[in-house]
């Protein structure tokens, strides 16, 4: 583990007084920093809290919010909760998967620009179907609208890369 990473994780651990019952918020902070949970960081957290690495790994794989593989730069969350489902969110999921070359097993594009997550309810059911791209909620989506949004993000990304 790099010195920098080490000191980041130590800072997070100190913030929670190295308290094992704060494992979940600690992992949340680590993930927030690296956008996933690197294995060396998890082992370090386990050793610092005095709990087996297997327990940390167990918690990390139990909750859907945690990811043990790196995620893309832009996160697309498509809601497939009941309200969105009956308003045909499936078609939106298919459209995005086709567009980005993803499927039920593959969630992140090869260039690590996009990760697609299907979630159950974002609590915005009144304006279903809902898609969230990088924290911004988009109401009453259609396959056409969502692919246009992705094009927009990809265009910005290409412009930034060109600079």
């Amino acid at each position: 583990m790099s010195v920098e990473k080490l000191s980041d994780v130590i800072a997070i651990l100190n913030e929670y007084d190295n308290n094992p019952s704060k494992l979940i918020p600690i992992l949340q902070k680590v993930q927030h920093k690296y956008n996933y949970l690197p294995e060396d960081a998890m082992t370090f957290v386990a050793n610092s809290l005095g709990i087996p690495p297997a327990k940390v790994f167990g918690v990390a794989t139990f909750f859907s919010h945690f990811s043990i593989t790196p995620k893309g730069k832009h996160i697309i969350k498509i809601c497939d909760g009941t309200a969105c489902h009956v308003k045909k969110s499936e078609g939106i999921i298919n459209a995005v998967q086709n567009k980005l070359g993803l499927n039920a097993q593959k969630h992140t594009t090869d260039d690590f620009n996009f990760t697609l997550e299907c979630v159950s309810c974002l609590g915005a059911c009144g304006i279903a179907p809902v898609v969230v791209i990088d924290e911004e909620v988009h109401p009453q989506m259609t396959p056409e609208k969502v692919t246009a949004l992705i094009d927009e993000v990809a265009k910005k990304e290409a412009q930034n890369a060109g600079k």
Binding site: T82, C121, G123
Partner: peptide
């Protein structure tokens, strides 16, 4: 509030 399709608590 885990029920997908419910947002009262939110």
């Amino acid at each position: 509030e885990g029920d997908p399709g419910a947002f009262m608590d939110r």
